[in-house]
Design a protein around this nucleic acid. Structure first.
Lengths: 189, 189
DNA sequence: CGTAACTATGTCGGCGTTGACATAGTGCGG
DNA sequence: CCGCACTATGTCAACGCCGACATAGTTACG
């Protein structure tokens, strides 16, 4: 019925009304943890959702040359989003630039690869830290226990992020340490 | 210097010469585990790599209306690929349709979501099984221990796949079991 | 004998996505 | 008072990518 980005936007509108600008902000955080889009794309997507009858808007005077538009989810949009959420997802097309680099790492200087891996480890540590803070905030208000609540849905996606970041870090550290041990024994021998 | 797909193709040519058709086959397996492309894309990419001096080809008569072209890596291609492999990757733009569904799962019938998760679990189990067979084949010939060998590079990417599939399965099972427990107590109560 | 699968390369339209450009009011700090 | 950041929406060109279409010889199975 619409694109994947369309469903991401509908998911925001299902929680509360948003302006296009607010949608763009949410597409950086927290949707950005599993889907991203620029504001250029979002404005076009919102227009198409309205055209398809899945969203509607009311106009308010805003700053700048354009009126502010507050978008809401229509009943049809809600039905369609619920249907989509439980439909089987297509097999994802993997796109992992990191693995492609490791696949070709045997051609490069091991020390340079180790430096690159150190950078990646730092990046993932940051991300994991952010996720763990969010989790602490959840747990402070009581761990979500009703699987039909919005709060539980947010929590479940957060746990996925924490799990995958941890696993990514585990593998990156193993690889870095293995490469470092090899280049050290090279330098020493 | 070229697109990410270009580096994926160069990575294959660094191992041995390939025809365009063979590149397309390798882009399904094993490169398909972390990067995918259709043959339409591959032919265009190969032309650009030749134009940029990173690859070269010799023509052989082949079946069908076109000559067969065997592509090889040039010295410039090898240098460029080695440079790229150790350069810091850009932060990936996350695209996880599964998480987007879970984010909106609170709108749907829990039993339908559980059925969808069961399908995903089966798919990931298959993938993990494939990876573990590949790993067994590696270990039968001795676990790769030279981090500068092509074999070690292949092995490292395989371990990443096994780790991430295991983690994905762990999370999917937790979510399914939690949702199932909730809808069971609903039906019973 | 037909036909399906495999080898082998190529074009084309359409869509999703990105980055740059464009416009303009409000509020804040130097 | 100047400039920057934020709110707010919009267009446009370019590119990556996908599915469909096109051509044609060999091999193998029923």
């Amino acid at each position: 019925m619409t694109t994947t980005l369309g469903y991401a936007v509908l998911g925001l509108l299902a929680r509360r009304p948003h302006s296009g600008y607010e949608v763009a902000a949410r597409m950086r955080t927290p949707i950005g943890y599993f889907w991203t889009a620029s504001h250029a794309q979002i404005h076009g997507t919102l227009s198409k959702l309205v055209e398809a009858g899945l969203a509607a808007y009311t106009t308010e005077p805003g700053p700048g040359p354009y009126d502010k538009k507050m978008y809401t989810l229509t009943p049809a949009g809600r039905t369609e989003l619920a249907r989509w959420a439980a439909s089987p997802p297509p097999a994802p097309q993997p796109r992992n630039e990191m693995l492609l680099r490791v696949y070709n790492g045997w051609l490069a200087d091991p020390a340079a690869v180790v430096a690159m891996l150190d950078g990646e480890i730092a990046r993932h540590r940051d991300t994991l830290g952010t996720y763990q803070e969010l989790r602490a905030a959840f747990d402070a208000n009581g761990t979500p226990d009703d699987p039909r609540s919005v709060r539980f849905a947010d929590y479940a996606t957060l746990l996925a992020g924490i799990g995958s970041e941890r696993e990514e870090l585990r593998w990156l550290k193993w690889l870095r340490d293995t490469l470092r041990a090899a280049s050290d024994s090279d330098g020493a021998g």
